[in-house]
Simulated assay, not measured.
Amino acid sequence: MKKFLLVFICTVFCVITINAQEEQTTTNDNTVKGQFETLIRKSTNYRQGGKRYEVVRLLELEAFQRNILDTIRVANTNIGELQATISENETALNSLNTRLDDTSKKLIELTAEKDSMSFFGAMVSKGTYKLIVWCIIFGLLIFLVLFIYKFKNSNTLTQQAKLALSDVEGEFEDHRRRALEREQKISRKLQDEINKNKKST
Score class of each variant (00 low, 15 high):
52 R>P: 01
52 R>I: 11
53 Y>E: 07
54 E>C: 11
54 E>F: 06
55 V>N: 15
55 V>Q: 15
55 V>T: 11
57 R>E: 09
60 E>V: 14
61 L>Q: 03
62 E>D: 13
65 Q>R: 12
65 Q>K: 10
66 R>K: 09
66 R>P: 00
67 N>D: 08
69 L>D: 08
69 L>T: 13
71 T>R: 02
72 I>H: 14
72 I>K: 08
73 R>Q: 03
73 R>T: 04
74 V>F: 12
75 A>P: 04
77 T>D: 14
77 T>P: 07
78 N>T: 15
78 N>C: 07
80 G>V: 06
80 G>I: 07
81 E>G: 02
83 Q>R: 09
84 A>Q: 07
85 T>S: 06
86 I>P: 01
88 E>K: 13
88 E>I: 06
91 T>I: 05
92 A>I: 15
92 A>F: 04
93 L>E: 05
94 N>A: 10
95 S>V: 14
96 L>F: 13
98 T>N: 07
98 T>P: 00
99 R>C: 12
100 L>R: 07
100 L>Y: 08
101 D>G: 05
103 T>K: 13
104 S>T: 00
104 S>R: 14
105 K>E: 14
105 K>G: 15
106 K>I: 13
106 K>C: 10
106 K>V: 15
107 L>I: 09
107 L>V: 09
108 I>T: 14
108 I>V: 15
108 I>P: 01
108 I>M: 14
108 I>F: 09
109 E>F: 07
109 E>N: 13
110 L>M: 14
113 E>A: 08
113 E>T: 00
114 K>M: 15
114 K>A: 14
115 D>A: 13
117 M>F: 04
118 S>V: 05
118 S>A: 11
120 F>P: 01
120 F>K: 04
121 G>F: 00
121 G>N: 01
121 G>D: 00
123 M>Q: 13
124 V>P: 00
126 K>W: 14
127 G>R: 08
127 G>N: 09
128 T>L: 11
128 T>E: 12
129 Y>M: 02
129 Y>Q: 01
130 K>F: 15
130 K>G: 10
131 L>Q: 10
131 L>D: 14
132 I>R: 03
132 I>A: 06
133 V>P: 01
136 I>A: 08
137 I>N: 01
138 F>D: 07
139 G>M: 01
139 G>E: 03
139 G>K: 02
141 L>W: 10
143 F>G: 02
144 L>W: 12
144 L>G: 02
145 V>A: 15
146 L>K: 02
147 F>Y: 12
147 F>Q: 05
149 Y>I: 00
150 K>L: 11
150 K>G: 01
150 K>S: 09
153 N>H: 04
153 N>I: 03
153 N>C: 03
153 N>L: 06
154 S>Q: 09
155 N>C: 05
155 N>M: 06
156 T>S: 03
156 T>M: 02
156 T>N: 04
157 L>P: 00
159 Q>I: 02
160 Q>H: 07
160 Q>R: 10
161 A>I: 04
161 A>W: 11
161 A>E: 05
161 A>Y: 06
162 K>A: 05
163 L>K: 12
164 A>Y: 01
164 A>Q: 03
168 V>T: 05
169 E>I: 15
170 G>S: 13
170 G>E: 12
171 E>D: 05
173 E>T: 15
174 D>R: 11
174 D>N: 12
175 H>A: 13
176 R>H: 09
176 R>A: 13
177 R>G: 10
178 R>L: 12
179 A>G: 14
180 L>I: 15
181 E>P: 00
181 E>S: 08
182 R>N: 10
183 E>N: 12
